[in-house]
Amino acid sequence: MSEQHPPQASGRGDPQRRPRRETVTYASAHGAGTTVPGPARRHPVHPPARSEIDEQTTLGHTYVRSLMRSQLRAALTALGALALLVGSLPLLLALPAPEAFVWLALGVGVYPVVWGTALWYVRRAERNERDFTGLVER
């Protein structure tokens, strides 16, 4: 994906976006519209890294990208495990296999594998977020 490319807009985001339609379910659901809430809504003093993110500077984008990269890595690892452990089963089962093996593999065995992968991912993703918050709040 595009993580290696320089950001499209290096300065601030576009503050003069046209007013949104007021819908009950979307726009009104998160007061500040679609942009990251500006400094006005926050506490006056921030650690420098966090201000960079809030104000959408190039450095701020770099921070966001680093988090996205680590989260994407975790996601792709989990998907790789799924493809390897479950996605390969049709080929494996196309070989002559005892019927009991098919039942055990598809009827029972797959579920702990899927759940275990999910648990690993959730822990990993939360750790990535904690590390990131620690980095920018410092």
Partner: peptide, 26 residues
């Protein structure tokens, strides 16, 4: 879309940083 960087930041940053946890005020 011009808002892409800001939106992606909101999608991926934890709420503690973006401050978008819905509060009673909203």
């Amino acid at each position: 879309p011009p808002g892409t960087p800001a939106l992606l930041a909101r999608l991926h940053l934890p709420e503690e940083i973006t401050g978008t946890v819905p509060g009673p005020a909203q």
